[in-house]
Computed example of a mutant assay.
Amino acid sequence: MKQWGKASILLLAFAIMVVLSACGNKANENNNTAGGNKTSNQEGETNQAGSPEPSDATKNLDALKGKKIALIMQFNTGTFSSQYIQGVKDQVTKFGGEVQVFAADNDLAKMASNLDAAINQGFDGILIDHGQAGALEAGVKRAVEQKIQVIAFDADLKVPEVTVLQQDDAKLTEMTLNKLSEDAGGKGSIVKVWVAGFAPMERRNVAYKAFLDSNPDFKEIAAFGNANNPAMDAQSQMEAVLKKYPNKGDITAVWASWDEFAKGATRAIQQAGRTEIKVYGIDMSDEDLQLIQDSNSPWVASAAVDPISIGSVQVRYLYQKFNGDQTDETVVLEPTLVKREDLPALPEKVNTTQLSEHVEGWGSSEQGYTDLLKELEASTAK
């Protein structure tokens, strides 16, 4: 019995060792397999099929591509508007999206209808150019309720979740009027070309009135303006004013609150041979620059924000919204004063793309251009 007991104990111990060895090998196999998968997922994020899993950053970029954008415009008049549209389209294309332009020909009812159409057609985002709250607010609120992102430019909208871009209209006005005062020696007679009913125009008019209040040696002798066919209307009305004030010295300068108005007034003054009258405008385009460069032109200065940059910046804030970023209610775009004395004389022509070579502060803006959007643009370009 004693011998048998010792043998039994030895056999039992051997059996336990065999079992433990087998379990150990199995555990090592499992650990190796689990460790291999873990390493693969950490370094290459490989799924069961062996292909890499996209990172969160890549998923974010992919989600921003292929967006369909509606651009709802109150009017599409002149080269400023065409360059603004160019800025919008170029930036959306660089982000891998598409743009459709809806122009309302200065008809607010049509603009509201175009906004409704964009909502019903399921655009991912809506850009608004000008317009009035009375015509647009209901549609904008409906777009926001349907999770369509909206960014406006120069519109008097105050809707939660909607960012509004605007030029610093007070500064635009002050820049041009201060230059006018400097050139005129602090006194004179002014013709104002302006139109009511537009948020930026209203802000410019407030600053204009403040200038007259602070400079009593300047007098306004005439005022006019029409947003329909603005350049042609300004030209014909300026012709009438010139007939009313036919003598040299009767009119010191024209202050034009929009470059379309400045173009019309400039043509009327040139044709009448009254180039002693100087023109000071707001906004800038390639066509405007050539008129300012011309030494025979009465248009001598204009304050503006690059229209291409305005379009680009507006798009960037829309894409920030797409990404879920919080954006300010109002974004102010800083202007630059462009003067004839800063530009080369004709026949060398300068366009707005080259203007930064001659005028400090002009050029492509980095506003709204986040690191993620730079990555999106780079990935789309590949």
Rank of each mutant, 00 (worst) to 15 (best):
N28D: 13
A63T: 05
G44D: 08
T58L: 03
D105F: 09
E53S: 02
A103E: 15
A70S: 07
D105A: 15
I72T: 06
K59H: 02
S40F: 03
V88D: 04
L71H: 09
Q86K: 14
N47F: 10
N28I: 04
V92T: 06
M73D: 05
T79C: 07
G36M: 08
D105Q: 15
Q48F: 11
V99C: 07
S82K: 11
T93M: 11
G66M: 07
T93C: 05
Q42H: 10
N60Y: 00
N41G: 02
N60A: 15
T58K: 01
D90H: 02
T39D: 12
N31F: 15
N47D: 15
N47R: 08
Q86M: 08
D90M: 04
V101F: 06
S81K: 06
Q100N: 11
Q91L: 07
I85D: 05
N41H: 09
G96K: 07
A57T: 11
L71E: 10
N47M: 07
A57D: 13
K38S: 12
A27I: 14
N60H: 03
T58Y: 05
V92W: 09
A63G: 02
M73G: 02
G50S: 06
Q48L: 13
S82M: 14
N37S: 12
Q48A: 15
G97D: 03
S82A: 15
F95N: 12
A103T: 11
K68E: 14
T39S: 11
Q86T: 14
K65S: 11
N47E: 12
Q48S: 14
K68Y: 09
M73N: 07
E53F: 03
T33E: 13
S82Y: 10
V92S: 08
D62I: 10
N47W: 09
K89H: 04
D90L: 07
N32L: 10
S82F: 09
V99F: 04
Y84Q: 12
N47S: 07
I72P: 11
A34H: 08
T46W: 13
K68P: 00
A27E: 13
K94S: 12
V101T: 13
N41A: 05
D56H: 06
K59W: 04
G87L: 06
A27V: 12
N31P: 01
G36R: 09
Q42P: 02
V99A: 08
N76P: 00
N30L: 14
D62L: 10
G44P: 00
S55L: 00
S51P: 00
I69L: 08
A49N: 13
N31T: 07
L61A: 05
G78C: 09
Q86S: 12
S40V: 03
N60K: 15
G96E: 02
S55V: 03
G87E: 04
M73Y: 01
T58P: 01
A34W: 11
N47K: 12
Q86D: 14
F95C: 08
T93F: 01
G87Q: 06
G35A: 02
T77I: 13
F95P: 00
K89E: 15
N28V: 06
L71N: 12
G96T: 03
K65F: 03
K94P: 00
T77H: 01
G96R: 07
A49H: 05
F102H: 12
G50P: 01
Q74F: 13
A27W: 10
N76W: 01
